[in-house]
C-alpha cells in the first residue's frame, strides 16, 4: 500500500510539471492554431540558460530563475516575429515542419555549447526526504510542485480576470471576429509564445534540478504530448488534469512493470497505451471541442 501511495504521490508531483509544460503547448495552439513541436526544446534551452547564469555567471538561483524567464520571453517574441509570423497562412503541415526544424536547431545549439553529457545544478536545497506521514518524498519535488501550481494559478487568473486575457480568449475563439473589433492578432500570438516559453523554461529548471541536464530533456516535448491530446488539444482545464494523470500513469506503470518484468524505464510508454485506448472511445480527448463537420 505504501509502495502504491509513494508512486501515486511521485506521479502527481511529476505530473504537475507535465501540466505546466502542456499548458504552453495548448496556449500556442489555442491562440494561433500552431502545433509547437519545439516545446520540449524550449524547456531544455531554458534550463541551460539558467544553468549558465548560475554556474558561469554565479547569479543566485532565484535571480537566475527570473532572468531565465525574461530571456526566454525575449526569445519567444523573436521566434514568433521572425519565424512564425511569416507562416501565418501556411498549411498546418508546413508550420509543423518549421517548429520541428526549430527544435532540431535548438538541440544542436545545446550540443555545440554544452555537449551531450549530463550536467548537474549545484545543490540549492539539501535533498532531505520530506515525511508526508505515510510516504517520504524528496523536498525538491515538493518545491517544483508548488512552483508549478503557482504558475498555473497566476496564468489562470490572468486569463480569467485581465482585459488582455479576455482579448486573448476572444482571439482563440474566433480570429476573424477578434480582428474585426481591432484585436491585433500578432500581439496575441506573441503573448501566447511568451507564456509558453515561460512555463516551459520553469519546467526545465525544475526538472533540471531534479534529474540533471542533458539534451535529452527535449524529449519532454514528446512526453507531454499525451497530456495535450488526452486533454483535448484546446482545453486548458483538460490538459491540466491530463498532465497529472500522465505523471501518475508513468510512475505507477513504471513501478509495477519494473517489479513484474525486471525492466526499468517502461514508465513513459504507459501513457501512450492509455492514450490510444482513450482516443478509441473519445476521439476529441477528455475535454476537447467536439468538431462537427457539415458535408
Amino acid at each position: 500500500m505504501d509502495y502504491f501511495a509513494g508512486l501515486l504521490i511521485n506521479g502527481i508531483l511529476v505530473g504537475a510539471v507535465y501540466s505546466m509544460v502542456a499548458l504552453g503547448f495548448v496556449l500556442i495552439y489555442k491562440a494561433s492554431r500552431v502545433l509547437n513541436f519545439a516545446q520540449g526544446e524550449l524547456l531544455m534551452i531554458g534550463a541551460y540558460f539558467c544553468l549558465e547564469l548560475v554556474v558561469r555567471l554565479e547569479v543566485g538561483i532565484l535571480s537566475a530563475f527570473i532572468l531565465t524567464l525574461v530571456l526566454m520571453s525575449v526569445m519567444a517574441v523573436l521566434i514568433e516575429r521572425l519565424i512564425l509570423r511569416k507562416m501565418m497562412n501556411a498549411p498546418v503541415i508546413s508550420v509543423v515542419m518549421v517548429t520541428i526544424g526549430l527544435g532540431i536547431m535548438l538541440r544542436s545549439v545545446v550540443l555545440l555549447f554544452w555537449g551531450p553529457i549530463t550536467i548537474h545544478f549545484p545543490e540549492f536545497i539539501a535533498d532531505v526526504p520530506f515525511d508526508l506521514g505515510f510516504v517520504r518524498v524528496s523536498v525538491i519535488y515538493i518545491y517544483g510542485f508548488l512552483i508549478c501550481i503557482a504558475f498555473m494559478v497566476i496564468f489562470g487568473l490572468f486569463f480569467r480576470y485581465t482585459r488582455t486575457g479576455l482579448v486573448m480568449r476572444g482571439a482563440a475563439s474566433s480570429q476573424m471576429a477578434a480582428r474585426s473589433v481591432g484585436v491585433p492578432l500578432h500581439m496575441v500570438f506573441a503573448l501566447a509564445w511568451v507564456v509558453a516559453a515561460i512555463v516551459s523554461a520553469a519546467g526545465g529548471v525544475i526538472t533540471g534540478n531534479i534529474a540533471g541536464l542533458t539534451p535529452e530533456l527535449s524529449a519532454y516535448g514528446v512526453r507531454v504530448f499525451p497530456a495535450v491530446i488526452l486533454g483535448g488539444l484546446d482545453s486548458i482545464v483538460g490538459t491540466t488534469i491530463a498532465g497529472v494523470l500522465i505523471g501518475v500513469m508513468e510512475e505507477l506503470g513504471g513501478g509495477y512493470l519494473r517489479d513484474w518484468t525486471g525492466l526499468s524505464g517502461l514508465g513513459p510508454v504507459v501513457p501512450f497505451f492509455v492514450l490510444i485506448i482513450v482516443l478509441w472511445i473519445r476521439p476529441h480527448g477528455l475535454m476537447g471541442t467536439k468538431e462537427i463537420e457539415r458535408l
Partner: peptide, 11 residues
C-alpha cells in the same frame, strides 16, 4: 496599453 491592462484585475 495592453501591459497596463494586464495590471487591472477584473471586476
Amino acid at each position: 496599453n495592453w501591459i497596463r491592462q494586464c495590471l487591472y484585475w477584473g471586476p
